[in-house]
Each structure stands twice: as C-alpha cells, then as structure tokens.
Amino acid sequence: MAKRHFDIKAQPGFAFLAILTFAVLYLPIATLVVYAFNASDSVSIWGGFSLKWFVEAWNNSAVQDAAWRSLVIAFFAAAIATSAATMAAIATTRTEPYRGLGFKYAFINQPLMVPEIVTAVALLIVFSRLKVWTGYSGLGYLILAHTAFCIPFAYLPIRARLESMDLTLERAAADLYATPWMTFRRVTLPLLRPGIIAGFMLAFVISLDDVVITEFVKSGGQDTLPTYMLGQIRRTVTPEVNAIATAFLALSVVLVTAFFFINRQKT
C-alpha cells in the first residue's frame, strides 16, 4: 500500500493532544464514578471499596421520589415531543419546497438556539401566573416545559430518516390503492420507526438531564433527580451524590448506545 501523503495521526504532538483531550473529558467523570464506591463519608478521601452509598441512595425515599418523578416527566415529555416532532417532520419533508420552509426549520429548532435560562425565566413568569389562575400546580407544567425543549431533539433524527427514505415507496403504495392514511400507516410509519425510536430516546435523555428549566418551573416538592442532586451539593456533600450520578450515567450510556444502534439500522 502506498503511504498517504497526509496522515494527521503521524503529526508530532498528535498523540499527546489526543490523550490530553480524553483526560480532560473523562478523568473527572472517572473520579466521580470511583468515589461512588468509597466506603468513607468523604468525596475526596478514599476509605476502601464499598457499595454502601448505592444502598443508601436506593433506600433514600427522597431519591426514590425524585428518580420516579424524573422518569415520569421524561416519559411523557418524550412521548408528546416525539409525536409532535413526527408530525412536524412529515409536514416539512413531504411537501414541495417553498419560501419560508427554512424559516420553519429554524422555528421548530428554536429551543436549540434560545439560551436555556431565557426560556426558563419566561416559563417561570408565565407558569406562575397560570398557577394562580388555574389553581393547578401539578407535574403538568414540568412535562409541558420539557416537551417544548425536547421537540427539536426528537425532530432531527426523524427528519433525517424521512429525507433519506425513498419517496417512490409512498408513491408505490398510493399506486396500489392505499389512501394517504393507509400509506402512512402501512409504509411510512413502519419505515420511520427506527427514526421515531431514536428521537424518543434522545428526547428522553435530554429531559432526564435537564436542570435549568426544571429548577425554575418546579413547584415545591417537585424535585427531579438532577435538581435533587443540586440541592444536596449545596448542603453536605457525601458520596451518595456520586452513587446517584453513577447510576444516572449508566442509564444515559445505555440509552445513547441503544440510540446509536437503532439509528444505524438500515430499514
């Protein structure tokens, strides 16, 4: 094999830079994970291996409560966002290009561009009014807020899938007497499924992860796992937080890996 003229891996200092980058990215996380297994009460002094903080966290009713709430919010927010995103993706891809379509893309992806703190403050103001008017202060607000910022994350993989899909297939279905609804049900939707699942999972992870908007929107006693952890750190820090974070990390890794494999699937 002839040598390639330019191989970035052969440049001096490349290996060093790469290792440094990975270290900066992963060493803090690795430390956090390691100290989750710490037997002592400190997050910085090693006292031997133990699973005690996992047990502690697992049995802590506040953690259970927050974790359950996180999952409920993430599930509903992701589900609603994915439905909305699917409809938006179909509306923006199964149409002749027209002026203002690019504008619509930008509109749908707005939450990616607006600083989260701005959305958070805006929602705080609107929702606090709504809470007074309606008297309702349940989880609905958090689900609604999460749905809003999850939509672009669900939208992107679904739109990508639709754009790569062969339009002739839908045409063939129509040719074979399928009404537009049946074409959607029998052809578009089954072929779109990997995109929808990927979109749902991405939205789910994003919702689980959210701190800023949740912190502003939540009513009293509506802590999610991330806001609970934030609250804990403000007081005394024990390796319990590490244990929660580690469990959280494991869940995210599983979901993102699954997302990757589903997205790679061809049909």
Binding site: A172, A173, L176, L191
Partner: peptide, 18 residues
Amino acid sequence: PFKRPINTVFQSYALFPH
C-alpha cells in the same frame, strides 16, 4: 393514484423493504 385502476412497475421496483 389510489382511485385509478392503473398500476405501475417502477424503474427502481420500489418494493416495500419491510
């Protein structure tokens, strides 16, 4: 098209992959 008793064999065949 779905109301026409006319069917098409497409150049790319367009078989449903699923």
